[in-house]
Design a binder for these strands. Structure first.
Length: 570
RNA sequence: CGGGACGUGGCGCAGCUUGGUAGCGCGCAUCGUUCGGGACGAUGAGGCCGUCGGUUCAAAUCCGACCGUCCCGACCA
């Protein structure tokens, strides 16, 4: 492709509405343009990269036995009613009414639709199956952001597995795990597989693939010495036990005028260290109130609360609701002598004595509280949020916590869809058994963006070879110089014939502009051809990633490019 | 959904407080000089000032409503 004929609208300035590096570079580099919030047009460069990402994904899923389908984007709402997800996913589902008055859903994902096709599976002999497609998804995200990282219309590869039992599911799951690792590796990302919350969708187990990034939305706790890594939503740690002093025979109430926070009580005369206080939170779990108790210096992990109580809607009670339930305001709450409310306590409070907590009367607290004696805890759970610096639960290493981008998520769905949609086969005894499903997603555009987050410098994008829109850019310093254009055309032809994707920068621009653009759009190798080098029979190679430059004899240019590509692939 | 900011040529912005001919940089077009790291000069094209309504002799500017975009939070199989 000649750059002079290509549509590559690069921009000198960062777009005003971009924050994330990948967003800025994709727009500045002429890869895409925004149409509306969370919806982007892919320009030629963007589409080339997108196609390459899809090709890699397809290759890896095919390699573990995947069969490619193409299921519709338009779904009848009735199928979504059968699984109940029209309710649970209501906030992101986009739909419209057709001319007959029926509701049509723009597919946010395809479990229901693949499962519908799978009703044709009737015998155990037909299993296992691994089906997938690469399709546009629509999700009305409340807040699209960061360019391609969080959008409302995007492409996803989603695969689904169908097995006779959980052993089969485990095998398919492990194969996907391997395929996904290879995919992220080829996309130039160091993805960590972490255990995740499977959410409210009846999943037994799920693994997320996370790439470290400042613009990530999920936090991961990872051990610096072993391979422990988990989404903060499920992460645990080992904490040193705290020695409590001798207790009292019963709690003692004392006045604490103006004390409203854990920190206030720490410095209050007669107060207590935060790790010797009990924090009392009031939550509504699917509308039902519950008291949640934590050590004073610990933070609640709401997802753990939701998972452990099987709740869909979890939220902190409002000030008014708190007062109605406990008769005091936040800052003076406690669970001592509370009767008739569901009380959940974090494991870290087990056995603690002589603790200080609110007295359920404004401006009063209790000291000398023995949890097991004085509080009617109904359930003990792991509920707190792990913090950086704590000890790894698996070894004696230290945990670090950092933001990440979720680039893939794989689920063991189990028999949820089989139960809802009647997926079953007859086994060898003629008994009807439910089909065990798994589902496995990768967002194509999000992975493009995540790859940029992981592969860029102050000059622009640094694409991994496999997904670069072009392998090589030939920068013709003086396109009006006859010898320059002859040599560049010759090298261009030779490389193209060898299957190399080359962008020939023959624009009538100053060299600086061309160098800057080539670096911005991130082509892995630049060949600079100008009169100065040609005089001594050479062209210049400049590697984007290392910045390394070297002169190469004209005659060797093409073969050296092939060697470079070869080396980069291995 | 709560909080905040912003909407002015293709891009980035000023002008609005104090109403009166719409401006700057980049980019774009033509010509000339340049030409191995974002050149210079000359000339020129390009704007329903987000939309609707109100106030006024007169609105980019004041008032109201709406729409849109971004950021923080909530949310996110």
């Amino acid at each position: 492709m000649r750059w002079s004929e290509a549509f590559i609208p690069t921009l000198r300035d960062d777009p005003a509405d971009a924050e994330a590096v990948s967003h800025k570079l994709l727009v500045r580099g002429g890869y895409m343009r925004q149409l509306m919030a969370g919806v982007y047009s892919m320009l030629p460069l963007g589409q080339r990269v997108r196609a390459k990402v899809m090709a890699i994904i397809k290759e890896e899923i095919d390699s573990i036995g995947g069969q490619e389908f193409l299921l519709p984007q338009l779904h009848p709402s009735t199928i979504w009613e059968e699984t109940g997800r029209i309710e649970t996913m209501a906030d992101i589902i986009m739909s419209f009414e057709d001319s007959k008055g029926g509701t049509v859903i723009l597919g946010p994902t395809h479990e229901e639709i693949f499962a519908t096709v799978a009703t044709e599976l009737t015998s155990y002999k037909q299993l296992p199956q691994l089906w997938y497609h690469i399709q546009t998804k629509f999700r009305d995200e409340a807040r699209p952001k960061s360019g391609l990282l969080r959008v409302r219309e995007f492409t996803m590869k989603d695969s689904y597995t169908f097995d006779v039992d959980f052993e089969g599911l485990d095998l398919q799951f492990d194969r996907h795990l391997g395929a996904y690792k290879r995919i992220f590796d080829r996309l130039g990302m160091d993805a960590v597989a972490v255990r995740a919350s499977s959410g409210a969708m009846g999943g037994k187990e799920s693994v997320e693939f996370m790439v470290r990034s400042d613009v990530g939305e999920d936090e991961v706790a990872a051990c610096s010495s072993c391979d422990y890594a988990a989404n903060l939503e499920t992460a645990t740690s080992t904490l040193a036990a705290i020695e409590d002093p001798g207790g009292m025979s019963e709690p003692e109430r004392f006045a604490t005028p103006g004390v409203r926070t854990i920190a206030d009580l720490e410095v209050f005369d007669g107060g207590a260290r935060s790790d010797r206080q009990i924090k009392t939170l009031v939550y509504l779990l699917d509308g039902e109130p519950a008291l949640v108790l934590l050590r004073g210096d610990h933070a609640l992990q709401e997802q753990k609360l939701a998972d452990t109580t099987q709740s869909i809607e979890v939220r902190a009670a409002h000030a008014e609701e708190i007062n109605n339930i406990l008769g005091a305001d936040a800052g003076s709450l406690g669970a001592v002598a509370v009767d008739g409310e569901r009380i959940l306590a974090d494991e870290q409070l087990r056995g603690r004595r002589a603790m200080t907590t609110g007295a359920n009367a404004n401006d009063f607290h209790l000291r000398g509280v023995d949890i097991e004696r004085d509080i009617a805890v109904n359930e003990w759970h792991e509920l707190r949020t792990v913090e950086a610096g704590e000890s790894c639960p698996n070894c004696d290493g230290v945990l670090e916590v950092f933001p990440t981008i979720e680039v893939g998520h794989i689920f063991k769905l189990g028999t949820f869809y089989a139960d809802k949609l009647g997926l079953s086969v007859l086994d060898e005894n003629g008994t009807m058994i439910p089909i065990v499903m798994g589902s496995y997603g990768i967002g194509v555009e999000r992975n493009m963006a995540a790859s940029i987050e992981a592969n860029h410098d102050e000059k622009g994008i640094v694409w991994p070879i496999e997904i670069a829109p072009y392998h090589v850019v030939i920068t013709v310093v003086r396109p009006d110089d006859e010898r320059s254009s002859e040599v560049s055309a010759a090298i261009y032809d030779e490389l193209t014939a060898a299957g190399v994707e080359v962008l020939l920068d023959d624009r009538k621009e100053r060299p600086g502009v061309k160098f800057t653009d080539a670096e911005l759009i991130g082509i892995p190798l630049r060949i600079t051809i100008g009169p100065r080098g040609l005089e001594s029979g050479v062209v210049e190679f400049a590697e984007r990633r290392s910045g390394e430059r070297r002169d190469v004899a004209i005659a060797n240019a093409a073969s050296e490019v092939l060697a470079f590509l070869e080396a980069a692939h291995s």
